[in-house]
């Protein structure tokens, strides 16, 4: 029954995901715009300084960005469910809270995988070649990063009774995580205060791993990236499940 509940909760989210045409279109258009505009725009800065192709450098960062936003949004949809009453339908069902939390986490991962795959299709824009092996590796990294970030979002959602605190979370957690993840610029030359933030940011390790796999260019060893994200994911899931069990 545990896995059936997980399946049903995932199934619902996926149905909703594909039903919103604007969401599907947005999930293709957003990364395409970022790549086309930011990639082209900053390319001129980078090429004048004599370094590599910026659009290519940006590509793994855009995957990371998408995973971050997809994961957090899918997790905080719990707050919507609370607002619109559907959460009660889930909470009075004869299934454990843990299965609901796991279902929500996996549905976040699944949505991230879909979004990530869409961006990989866009790799032609920036002239990046992806072999089947790279694609599998990228998907694995997306899965891990998304697991970590969705459980973080779920922790926030279980502690937040309404949408009033949502802007706070967006401005002071999600945006800084996004900007200071090395998605836009290499982290090697940063000042110490910024570097310390980048170091504790789980998304940095996701972006670094993606960049390593796709472009062969990275700061940490792949195992470091994976261990950090896995550790973060395990701790966050444990805390989120506990919080979710206590809520209400």
């Amino acid at each position: 029954m545990f896995w059936k509940a997980v399946y049903v909760i995932c199934l619902r989210d996926i149905r909703r995901f594909f039903r919103e045409k604007s969401q599907v279109i947005g999930s293709i258009a957003r990364p395409a715009l970022w790549l086309a505009i930011m990639g082209t725009g900053f390319n001129t800065v980078f090429s004048s300084s004599g370094s590599d192709n910026y659009a290519q450098f940006l590509f793994p960062g855009i995957i990371g960005m998408t995973v971050l936003f997809t994961s957090v949004f899918s997790a905080v949809s719990v707050i919507w469910d609370r607002q619109f009453g559907f959460l009660r339908e889930m909470l009075v069902a004869p299934v454990s809270r843990t299965s609901i939390a796991v279902g929500k986490t996996l549905s976040g991962c699944f949505q991230s995988l879909i979004q990530g795959s869409i961006i990989m299709v866009l790799s032609f824009i920036v002239d990046v070649h992806l072999s089947p092996l790279i694609i599998v590796q990228v998907l694995a990294i997306i899965l891990l990063a998304s697991f970590a970030l969705t459980s973080m979002g779920l922790l926030i959602a279980s502690r937040m009774p309404s949408f009033e605190g949502f802007n706070l979370i967006m401005n002071f957690l999600v945006m800084p995580m996004f900007l200071m993840s090395g998605a836009f610029f290499p982290i090697s030359g940063l000042p110490a205060w910024m570097k310390s933030i980048v170091t504790i940011n789980p998304l940095s390790y996701g972006v670094d791993a993606l960049r390593g796999v796709i472009l062969g260019f990275h700061e940490h060893a792949l195992t470091t990236d994976i261990l950090f994200m896995a550790g973060f994911a395990i701790i966050m899931t444990a805390v989120a499940v506990t919080a979710f069990n206590k809520a209400e």
Binding site: Y7, V8, R12, R15, R16, R19, F84, F86, P94, V95
Partner: peptide
Amino acid sequence: LDDRLTAEENLDFHGMI
């Protein structure tokens, strides 16, 4: 209810869970 799902899907969710 989940108002983005159909009536049937809402019932299916319930029946399965």
